[in-house]
Design a protein around this nucleic acid. Structure first.
Lengths: 185, 185
DNA sequence: AACTTCGTAAAATATATACTTTATAAAGTT
DNA sequence: AACTTTATAAAGTATATATTTTACGAAGTT
């Protein structure tokens, strides 16, 4: 391997580390970022064995990580005729990866919260107010009712925010700085 | 304490747990969310001692947590005449909290990345291409140059996204579902 | 100046998260 | 049917993150 080749390889691996680091900052495990970076730089889908080889981690761990990535919508399994092993392909658009990472996270939070919300609201509804209660207590009840509604609106907003990102509308208002296509450099 | 009062208190504490849980899902420690919830529900700024009492955690931990919250822009120390202890107040707007949480996180990632980006770009610039190199190697060098620029654009986009959120412009496109003011319920 | 009160740094401990090993089921091959 | 290959579940181990304990300096009080 020539000196230039060595240096390019080194730069490439630094780039992968940068992707890993970036994604880690955005709340997923560093390994997820590293695997994404490795497949991205490879330009071709990869198998669990190849990933295991490339990361130095166990195949089992790769299996776990890939599953997480699929849940996050930043990877998918692809089929190729004659190949028995799973081939994993990743999202190759930085912006889309960013969006998937956050919206799937937000979505999970919304879903989780909804059922709790209903439960709390039901609880509050069954609390009967009568004249024997002090002004302060009645006031507090009202505040809690109000907070619950407010919280519900908040989650509604997050839902609309998710849609705003996933539909791509965000790019109309925060446009990508176009630099031409990868293939006409 | 009457039965109603007990149940209200229970609902209130559940609400705090919900805030904690929600914020945990958004990448900060559960304790940060709990502290925010506690101060929020208290409607008044609180001291480290009060927080320690309310959470059952050490005062030292409260000190650490509050500092993190201040860095995240979701809390601040307020001064009150005659009070020596620090009084901690929190952001009381759900939407603003959401925004601060994410933008400060994104901002940190951008800052961290910028210096690395420059370093990598410099490295790549010093790699000289000459005719002895294969077509593949030259192609690979070009791809890396392209990726570096692409990555730089991506961070630029995140910066503009941060501004889009922090300026409040986001609310023009994903409006809050108005329900009137807290004080006219 | 000696004495408190308060906040936080540094080191030690506990808990949660990331990762590996071992074991097993499903599908493909002989 | 016996034998491989592949993926993943369950349980155990290691590493990272959250939290407490101990200690100390800065500012206020007597």
């Amino acid at each position: 391997m020539t000196n230039v080749e060595k240096r390019l390889k080194e730069s490439k691996s630094q780039f992968v580390e940068k992707i890993a680091d970036n994604m880690h900052a955005f709340g997923v495990s560093e390994t997820i970022g590293r695997v994404l970076g490795i497949i991205y730089m490879n330009r071709e889908p990869m198998t669990l064995d190849q990933l295991s080889e490339a990361t130095g981690m166990s195949k089992m761990r790769m299996s776990q990580v890939v599953r997480e990535m699929i849940e996050l919508n930043i990877a998918k399994k692809v089929f190729r005729k004659g190949v028995r092993k799973d081939l994993i392909q990743v999202e190759d658009d930085y912006y889309q990866t960013f969006i998937s990472l956050f919206t799937s996270n937000w979505q999970r939070a919304v879903t989780k919260s909804r059922s709790f919300e209903r439960k709390l609201q039901k609880d509050l509804e069954t609390i009967e107010l009568d004249d024997s209660l002090s002004k302060e207590v009645i006031e507090e009840k009202k505040e809690l009712d109000w907070e619950t509604k407010e919280w519900s609106d908040y989650y509604d907003w997050i839902n609309r925010l998710i849609e705003f990102f996933e539909s791509g509308e965000i790019f109309e208002h925060v446009p990508i700085n176009e630099r031409g296509n990868k293939n006409d450099k």
